[in-house]
Design a protein around this nucleic acid. Structure first.
Length: 951
RNA sequence: GGGCGAGUGGCGGAACUGGUAUACGCGGUGGACUUAAAAUCCGCUGCCCAAAAGGCUUAUGGGUUCGAGUCCCAUCUCGCCCACCA
């Protein structure tokens, strides 16, 4: 008998697929299409490790599954080749990125082929190929014509190490995403793509995407739409105006000062002789600070400009300050500060002794209204650990606890029984008493002693039922009366030096519970609810011409300029006057010249600036100088999904018909780029649709976001940690690509991270070996006997069903488990020769296995006597009639606990009375039922489960 | 601080709409084959009890239900993302 030899059969089938161009597809097919691909990789010099390849295996399994289902499946591959790592490598070695990139691609392609990936290689795409980036430039031109590519001078993130500006998305925790060095702010003229023009659609359409919630939430947060108002404050004794954005126009009467960001253009004009020096110093220092330094020091700093603005609501002058807690890049770069109702403003006001004016009375303070009491107050019983006794308290969410009585004096320790008694007496119906974990520090006012107390307790929370008898609530109100504090009184208590509660707790209270409430100190608006008055205040300001509704986004425009060599050149040139001109379409591509000195410098221009010859260009007979910035690599990757549909087109970026046939992508698989790339592809797609270049507005129908495979120690695999596992090592150890593929999908759900277990692959290899062996035994025997065909058919059909359903919900690990069970079953049934049932059982096995382990599946399918491919043979169907068992096992529970099982013929299982009789006659059931009264029985025919309830 | 997600054996994990918890694999263990080992094959393997019977068990506490890993409330722990966004 021939042994399972992965090396041999894998080489054979990889050759068959390559020679036969098996996976090349065209858009001319009368089958339903399926477009499946992964986020294309950056081909690094290090090659792939077993962590990277999982998403390729997911894609390949899906692609093969849909091919077998009869779909016209496009499964392309490509390389994201522009970018910093290749250029840094060129600087280090002097080797041109054009060459190293091709070397790396060749390495990747080889690795990829040896995994047995079913790829349409005719669609291979490389973003640094002039035939590709020519169209990236063409897209830039279209964006430029529509005003969606523009230049602006601005403060930008600058990486001093890589000497380039970075997009917001590329700054991670104040550090460069590539080199990890701290970034700085630098004022530069840069190119932007106006993604904010599509902010609303990008946000609203998220709801309709079949994407993981996690990614959708991240995109929503990233776009960060805030509805509010834009309000103008006139600077006192001038005609100058400071514009602010606020989401809380209702608090305008409480705006007691203003704050500008250090970068705000008006700062220098608002200073006077006295303040100029201090403000200048503060601004310089703030600008010099790196983002990390600004984040580390959350202590409020700031300086007074010397100017005042007029609060348009009150007419009062309020001081204008400069502080770096206000961000230049959000809203108007200036705020109206309302210290009474904003934590950050409160902190600032406290530090610089600025006035605090309360304009909203939070519901919880002073409101003697039952609703408010119920919503904002939790009744609690504090249990003292030392003696297990209880203390009744009522907890204000302002961070301290005051006692509520109800028959027991505050501070009095009582037995648990007494606690229950009181609750019964007062009519509170307790739903539960529960222990909370850990100790809690509480401050409470001991009424009988007339002083504030501090306690460490283990609280036991007690929730009240909804209906509290009116007699009780009246009594409760009476008791509570002295405890309720107004906002001012509360603040007094809290800030009193003898009180240990501290400001933190109080401001937390304000933040969480003081934001909405009843208006006060707000003129005509007093007495109304803050949430209801917002629009009216905006309307009132608008009448005076000083405000209007406005929506602001957290997302900024996409900065695409890179002062680097190895990127797609921006197709722009400047005339003698410095005016920008598009390079005409017929002069595209703007080829990236081959140079020798790649080193960037502090000039703010890329190494391209050193190529004097390249710099010169003639447009319409006019001599001009080329733009030396290149585009962010994300620009190149924002449209490759479209190019895959028409990769060889030399006349246009793509043919609309072809793209409309294949797109949108049915399955897009990756484990990275949750916001950046996945937002940019959506943005460009919408733009192309508006230009009439596409017939759809969302490029990715379904997104599968896969988890990482980590090293056995649970850490990320990386070259520097030396814990990288090369997939080809696993293959060459003798396990083969099939075992590797099956293992990576079997290790756990695809969306979760998993740790590589070197022993796990052995189990999977054993499984494939058993698949091989059971088939060989069948083929080798000559006479026709074997297991009971009924058992065989049942196993075959139920496995087909399970695997199909699991694949439809991308549950690869359970699909493989089902196949393992099937093989174990085949082993038990023991074939020893040909029979039509066994032939079909094994063909089904091999077909179901093909998406995961295509080499062994194709080999065995051939050995089973087929010359056509597995794809042509199609996906196994199942017949539910084989799944119906002749006998079923009835499960008997008594009071929900399993007590007995017995078998009955399937047609008996529908007879409830009969089942009940049989259940009660079971010996072990009688042990639990006899002497007790059967209250009722519940029979669930679907699960053939009966539950007997006794008392 | 905010948002999202997750806690099930020694380990990775299974249980689709509430209905026999621990499928499948790893590891462990006993046996067969072998002079021996590897490979392979066949058992056993959540915990407590000598075994049977029984009891306990899906982070913790509670609720709803005939019945809860699954639904609800609270608490704890871990992970990821965002983070002075007005």
């Amino acid at each position: 008998m021939k042994r399972y030899n992965p090396q041999e059969i894998e080489a054979k089938w990889q050759e068959v697929w390559a020679d036969g161009k098996t996976y090349e597809v065209s858009d001319k097919a009368d089958r339903p299409k399926a477009y499946v691909c992964e986020m294309f990789p950056y081909p690094s010099g290090a090659g792939l490790h077993v962590g990277h390849v999982r998403n390729f295996m997911i894609v390949d399994a899906i692609a093969r599954f849909y091919r077998q289902l009869g779909h016209n499946v496009m499964r392309p591959f490509g390389y994201d080749t522009f970018g910093l790592p290749a250029e840094n490598y060129a600087i280090k070695t002097g080797l041109p990125p054009q060459e190293t990139t091709l070397t790396n691609i060749n390495h990747f392609r080889e690795q990829f082929k040896r995994m047995g990936m079913g790829v349409d290689w005719s669609r291979e795409t490389n973003t640094s190929d002039p035939e590709y980036y020519r169209w990236t430039q063409w897209i830039f031109a279209r964006l430029y014509e529509k005003g969606l590519a523009y230049q602006a001078e601005n403060f930008q993130w600058w990486c001093p190490h890589d000497k380039t500006v970075l997009a917001n998305e590329q700054v991670e925790g104040g550090k460069c995403w590539r080199c990890g060095n701290e970034v700085e702010k630098k004022r530069m003229k840069q190119w932007f793509f106006k993604i904010t023009a599509y902010a609303d659609e990008l946000l609203d359409e998220i709801d309709n995407l079949d994407w993981p919630e996690k990614i959708k939430t991240m995109q929503r947060n990233w776009i960060g739409r805030s509805e509010g108002a834009e309000i103008e404050f006139v600077v006192k004794n001038t005609t100058r105006k400071v514009r602010v954005f606020t989401t809380r126009p209702d608090t305008i009467f409480g705006a007691t000062f203003m704050v500008l960001a250090p970068e705000h253009p008006l700062v220098s004009r608002l200073t006077n002789d006295k303040t100029r020096k201090a403000v200048g110093k503060y601004v310089t220092e703030a600008m010099r600070k790196t983002e990390v330094e600004r984040q580390e020091n959350k202590q409020k700093t700031g300086v007074f400009t010397g100017s005042y603005a007029i609060n348009p609501a009150t007419g009062e002058p309020i001081p204008i300050w400069v502080a770096d807690y206000v961000l230049a890049t959000y809203g108007e770069g200036a705020i109206m500060a309302v210290p009474a109702h904003d934590e950050r403003d409160y902190e600032f006001a406290e530090k610089f002794k600025l006035p605090i004016k309360q304009v909203i009375r939070p519901l919880v303070t002073g409101e003697k209204n039952e609703d408010a009491i119920r919503r904002n107050v939790i009744s609690a019983v504090v249990k003292r650990p030392s003696d297990g006794k209880f203390l009744f308290v009522k907890w204000h969410k302002f961070g301290w606890i005051s006692p509520v009585i109800g028959g027991i004096d505050p501070g009095e320790a009582v037995e648990e029984a007494a606690v229950r008694e009181v609750f019964e007496e007062t009519g509170y119906r307790t739903r539960f008493i529960k222990k909370l974990g850990g100790e809690v520090e509480k401050y409470f006012f001991a009424e009988n002693k007339g002083e504030w107390r501090h306690a460490i307790s283990q609280p036991v929370l007690l929730e009240l039922t909804e209906e509290t008898p009116s007699a009780v609530s009246a009594a409760e109100k009476k008791i509570q009366e002295p405890v309720w504090l107004t906002h001012d009184e509360a603040m007094e208590q809290v800030t009193h030096p003898d009180n240990k509660i501290g400001l933190d707790r109080f401001t937390n209270g304000v933040k969480n519970y003081g934001l909405e409430g009843t208006m006060m100190n707000s003129g005509a608006f007093d007495g109304r609810q803050s949430s209801e008055v917002r629009e009216d205040i905006v309307a009132w300001l608008e009448e005076q011409g000083v405000g209007k509704s406005k929506t602001t986004y957290r997302m900024r425009d996409w900065l695409i300029s890179r002062q680097r060599y190895w990127g797609c050149p921006i197709p722009i040139a400047y005339d003698a006057a410095g005016k920008a001109h598009l390079i005409p379409d017929d002069q595209l591509p703007v080829l990236l010249p081959k140079i020798t000195d790649y080193q960037p410098d502090d000039s703010g221009r890329s190494a391209l600036a050193k190529d004097k010859k390249w710099l010169k260009v003639t447009i319409d007979g006019q001599e001009m100088t080329r733009e030396t910035d290149t585009m962010d690599g994300y620009a190149c990757s924002s449209w490759y999904l479209l190019r895959y549909c028409d990769p060889k087109n030399a006349k246009q970026a793509w043919d609309k018909q072809k793209v409309d046939y294949w797109s949108p992508v049915d399955f897009y698989v990756g484990g990275d780029h949750a916001v950046a790339h996945l937002l940019y592809v959506r943005f460009w797609c919408k733009f192309f649709a508006d230009e009439g270049l596409l017939g759809f507005r969302e490029p990715v129908k379904r997104l599968l976001y896969n988890g990482y495979i980590n090293a056995p120690d649970g850490k990320k695999m990386s070259k520097s940690k030396g814990n990288v596992i090369d997939p080809l090592d696993i293959v060459d150890q003798g396990y083969g690509a099939d075992a590797l593929r099956v293992y990576e999908l079997f290790i756990g759900p695809y969306e979760l991270d998993a740790a590589w277990d070197p022993r796990g692959i052995g189990g999977v290899y054993r499984f494939l070996n058993r698949v091989w062996t059971v088939t060989q035994e069948y083929l080798a025997a000559s006479s026709a006997k074997g297991g009971d065909p009924a058992d065989l058919l049942k196993a075959q059909h139920s496995t087909a069903k399970r695997v199909t359903e699991d694949l439809h919900r991308n549950s690869f690990n359970t699909a493989i488990a089902a196949l393992m069970e099937y093989v174990n079953e085949l082993y038990k049934l023991k074939t020893s020769g040909f029979s039509p049932e066994w032939q079909e059982a094994l063909e089904t096995l091999v077909k179901l296995l093909a998406p995961f382990a295509p080499h062994i599946a194709n080999e065995l399918f051939e050995q089973l006597g087929h010359s056509e491919s597995i794809e042509e043979a199609g996906w196994p169907k199942w017949d539910d009639s084989y799944l119906v068992a002749s006998e079923v096992e009835v499960v008997v529970q008594v009071n929900g606990k399993l007590r007995a099982k017995f078998s009955v013929p399937a047609d008996t299982a529908v007879d409830e009375d009969e089942i009940k009789k049989l259940a009660l006659s079971q010996e072990n059931v009688q042990n639990f039922v006899s002497g007790k009264q059967v209250v009722k029985t519940i029979y669930i025919a679907k699960n053939h489960l009966i539950n007997i309830v006794v008392k």
